[in-house]
Design a protein around this nucleic acid. Sequence first.
RNA 1: GGUAGGUUGGCAGAGUGGUCGAAUGCGCCACCUUGGAAAGGUGGUUAGCGAGUAAUCGUUACAAGGGUUCGAAUCCCUUACCUACCUCCA
Length: 417
Amino acid sequence: MLDLKNILNNPQDVSNALLTRGYELDLSFIEDKAQERKKIIQKKEQLAGDKNIISDSFRTVSSDEEKEKLMSQSKKIDDEVQLLKSSLEKLEDVLNDHLLHIPNLPHSSCPIGDSDKDNSLIEKVNEPKGVNTKEHADILESIQMISFGEGVKITQSRFVVLKDKVASLHRALINFMLSSHIKKKYIEHNVPYICNSASLTGTGQLPKFEEDLFKISNSNLYLIPTAEVPLTNIYRDMILSIKDLPVMMTAHTPCFRSEAGSYGLDTKGIIRQHQFEKVELVQIVHPDHSQQALEDITLQARSILDELELPYQIVELCTGDLGFSSQKTYDLEVWFPSQDKYREISSCSNFGDFQSRRLNIKFKEDKEKNFVHTLNGSGLAVGRTLAALIENCFDGKQIIIPSVLHKYLDFKTIELS
RNA sequence: GGUAGGUUGGCAGAGUGGUCGAAUGCGCCACCUUGGAAAGGUGGUUAGCGAGUAAUCGUUACAAGGGUUCGAAUCCCUUACCUACCUCCA
């Protein structure tokens, strides 16, 4: 959520910045509501003060006549305050709801553009070998280590069953990723996979993106779309001491996404599933350090791809391609030989104080309290890593497991027999 | 699912109708003391909103919402959550 005061004080800057990401700010609406809100508050507080004086004087008054008079005055004020209260409540709901739907301001360093075509390439790492053109789905189906049919039978499309060595490899990837992050001082967490709407509003999935989530019927609960939600919400409504920063967390969780509006996309393979696993990195930091933290978290995500020796590229998202809550984002895109292109495998974002305003996470420095900055990055999406590994490490006869995974497995290759 | 009890400031924990935004202790901060530190002493230390350059002032908040009352942390109702025991269960 943006700072209302900042919008009111710098209306032109804010609306220009939002325009670069394609959002048109309704400034007059916000100004009107804020103005009206202020007036009502002042009136209401004036009356509340009067009322307090009356209540107070009650003790020193003894005659019944006086008491009667005070009571009737008090009643009159009550009625007025009641009216003001209810209109203030309505007004704040409207204003707040409006603010919750405004995306974050892009950082000034973001490349300006309309879509992913305008993203800027930062670096390419590990040139693709480009020998294999077989899709991971075909490779795994030929050795019966994946079943799309069974996923459909059990649930519906976009659910899958992994088996045998591939299931182990999937698990090994998770262990490898977590171990790497733990070595770099990220604290491992095991968190709930179901969360409430307050948590989702805090991190920005609600109220705007409810259709992307799986909601549990007859409840106010949802399946998590990413571990970012439970991890970041651990700190909701907290004032952290400066000593507590930075908070560095990691967790492996399944992620559930309805993938509304992506019916035709990536129908083959395991790239786009309703349920997938991800190892997530989250940092909560001092505002002065968040730019550096974004570089660090991106580097940490990259290190996984480096160690797996997969070809990938780093892209900085342009203003038009930024996620709703993000101020600045690097995507890591891994090479898929069968598709002859790079596909997103990690997204590392600095949210600035956008989430911490919604979540009410502050830190205390000397006497000052301020909103922290929050960041997260996938480190990495496990299903996509698995798929990329299968394709990139396939030599036509076997899948050669990268050596960093050997200690988590009791095989070094998966033969196509 | 049943029964009982609970939810107060960073923590612990008082407070059963006005003088309570809230005792006390711990923690934390500042100052005094010291060569420096510890101990000791003194003072300070909840948050949101509104006004003000500021000091500060006003207002709101004792799980949430509603009610009684001139006045509610305190009385009543509803909901949520927590704890214990019982039941069941990986």
